[in-house]
Every structure is written in structure tokens, then in C-alpha cells.
């Protein structure tokens, strides 16, 4: 292939697009959600409320909270982490509500996703972008 200026530009653009879409080792949003739902479609929104800060100065400890009325289990995913799974909360018979909160690590600026499994077996997702100033996964 003759490396003309036009070709070179196209290559560069394609490479840049790949890097933006797929940070090293990270799964896509759909893949990560599917791994939780077992291939089932997940509806966005619903009653699911995911609370996370817009900007987290320190990615080592980012507070996240979930309120998922009618859910039996909620899984947190951090799509931009080396391993997107974060934690799964299963609510037992004595759970007083469907709320829970914890603190998580985020490697970089990314979307935090909550996937809730509802009582009827369907799935809902909620997403929030968190800006991270200092990454929290070592390296």
C-alpha cells in the first residue's frame, strides 16, 4: 500500500477511534452487562437510582450507593477497570430496603454501572460517569 498523506490520516483516525472505544483490557458496556444478566436484555432506567460523585479526586475510594426498589440483587460494574466486576449485593428476606452503599476503586475516568435483577427475573441498569483525577488500581 502506498502511504499517501490521505491514507496515513485515515489510519491515524482509525487507531485513535479504537483507543477511545476500548481502553486496554476493558470490556464494553454491553459485554459487561451481559456477563451479569446471562445474555438477557437489560432495560435502562426504571426505579433504579445509582448515586456516585461526578468528580472523584481519589480513585482509591469512591463512594457509590444504590436504591433499587423491587430488586433481589444488584451488581456494580466499573467498565474502565482492568476487571469490570466490583461487587454484588444479594438482598435476603430480612433486608429492610433495597438500598446499599459501599466504596470502590476506579482506575480512570469511566462509567459506573449498576445492574439490578428484579423479582420477576428482568434486569435494569443505571449508569453514571465519574471523573477520576488519581487512578486507584496501582500500576
Amino acid at each position: 500500500m502506498n502511504l499517501t498523506r490521505r491514507n496515513a490520516m485515515a489510519l491515524g483516525a482509525a487507531a485513535a477511534a479504537t483507543i477511545v472505544a476500548l481502553p486496554a483490557g476493558a470490556a464494553t458496556f454491553e459485554e459487561a452487562v451481559m456477563s451479569v444478566t446471562g445474555g438477557k436484555e437489560a432495560a435502562e432506567g426504571g426505579d433504579l437510582v445509582l448515586t456516585a460523585p461526578e468528580i472523584a479526586e481519589n480513585g482509591n475510594t469512591v463512594p457509590v450507593a444504590i436504591d433499587a426498589p423491587g430488586a433481589v440483587a444488584v451488581t456494580f460494574l466499573a467498565i474502565g477497570n482492568p476487571n469490570p466486576a466490583v461487587a454484588t449485593f444479594k438482598f435476603g428476606p430480612l433486608a429492610g430496603s433495597r438500598e446499599a452503599s459501599t466504596r470502590i476503586r476506579l482506575a480512570t475516568t469511566q462509567d459506573v454501572v449498576a445492574v439490578a435483577e428484579m423479582e420477576d427475573g428482568s434486569f435494569q441498569t443505571a449508569k453514571q460517569t465519574v471523573k477520576v483525577t488519581i487512578g486507584g488500581c496501582g500500576g
Binding site: 482509591n60 476487571n83 466486576a85 449485593f89 444479594k90 435476603g92 433486608a95 429492610g96 430496603s97 466504596r103
Partner: peptide, 20 residues
């Protein structure tokens, strides 16, 4: 059972949980 949490390495140092 009240709650059962599966934890991955992405949970912070000194894991904290709040629930009802």
C-alpha cells in the same frame, strides 16, 4: 439472611458497607 455481598478486588481498602 439480611444481605450477602460478593466482593471483587475493585472494592476499596477497608471495605465499608451500609444497608438496611
Amino acid at each position: 439472611n439480611v444481605i450477602d455481598v460478593t466482593i471483587e478486588p475493585a472494592v476499596s481498602t477497608n471495605p465499608y458497607f451500609q444497608f438496611d
